[in-house]
Every structure is written in structure tokens, then in C-alpha cells.
Amino acid sequence: MRFLTILALGVTLGLAADSMARADTVAYHVGHDPKFVNIGFESEAEFETIIGTTNQARGRIDGDLAHGTGSVQLSVGVASLRTGIEMRDETLRAPAWLDATQFPEIGFVSKKVEPAPDRKDAVRVTGDFTMHGVSRELTVTVSWKAIPAEAAARAGFPAGEWLKVSTEFDVSLSAHGVKLPAIAIGKVSDTWRVKLALFAGTAEPEHK
């Protein structure tokens, strides 16, 4: 009888601890409005530094800011990438490059989130980065900042809690199965520097 009591107490305490841990995790949504998303990529080419951007992303961040844990899933439409030259954008979307028809999304799904060493405002996120239909494991340091509700309201953000997230990392095109056309080899870098700054809010986006 005493054993059963102790077992029941243990299970109850365990469930309570789990429930408390879950309570600390907040779900933030990405994709309320293009103005909250700014994602860029940069590539060195013979003629110029090519810079492209998109303001279209969708996803979700479940974060426990106090403990530096959580999960992330994010996707970006290839068709939304713009470099400032329409003809170049069409080339980028074409089958020889990112093949937007066959692989319309670039995505990231986390597998592990842990506190970044020596930083309270960042986490290390490891997950699968998928581009051109090929997934590669990627580990990035992501900075975050909780936005005070009154500051968000003053700037015209929808009601709810807001989180500012930023990171940058390198992506190899060839590692994701993008074979540069012969004419571009040696003239365009195989590596893109990707930068991301976005705001995620607790209110669900209207399109969901």
C-alpha cells in the first residue's frame, strides 16, 4: 500500500513538472505580415555581389526562453526570392538552378535546441535545412529578443507577445544538388550567405 502511495505521488510530481515545463514553452507564429519577415542571401559573382531577399516565410517557433529550449520550423517560397533583376530571378527559379516548380519550398525543421554557450540571448539550433529537395543538417546560433508588449503596440504590431529572431549561416548550392551551369562556373560563388531577421508573435496569422 505504501509502495502504491509513493508511486502515485511520484507520477503526480512528474506530471506536474512536465506540465510546468510545457507551460514555459510559448508558441510563436511566423507569417502574419511580410513586414515582419526579412530574409536575405548574398553571393559573390564575377560582375557583382548578388544580393537577394524575400519577405515571405511561414512557420512556428516553440520556445522556452528561460531555459533556451524549444523547436523551430520555417519555410520560404522559392518563387518569392528577388535579386533586383527580373531576368536573373527567372534564371534562379529555373530547373537549372533552384527549380521552383519541382522544389517550391526552402525549409528548416529543428531537431535540437539548446542554450548557446556564454550567451543568454541566443540558442544553438540544429536541424535539417532543405533546399532543392536535398536536406542537410545545419547548426546555427540564433539570437532572440523578447519584445515588450507596449513597444510592439506602439509600433503597430498586432496584440500578443512578440519575439525578434535573427541568425546567419552559409549554404552550399552544390551540397543541395544544385549544379551550376557551365557558363556560371567560376563566375558565381557556390556558397550563399543567408541572413534572417523576423518577428514571431503568439497570435495566429489570419491565413492559417
Partner: peptide, 17 residues
């Protein structure tokens, strides 16, 4: 230094914080 500009609301928020 080229920048991909943030929306004016975002700049206002960034400057405030």
C-alpha cells in the same frame, strides 16, 4: 553598406528597443 530595408514599423520598434 547595402541593406535590405526593414519596414518602417519594424525600424521604429528596433530603434525603440
Amino acid at each position: 553598406l547595402p541593406i535590405a530595408p526593414h519596414h518602417t514599423d519594424v525600424v521604429a520598434l528596433n530603434r525603440a528597443t
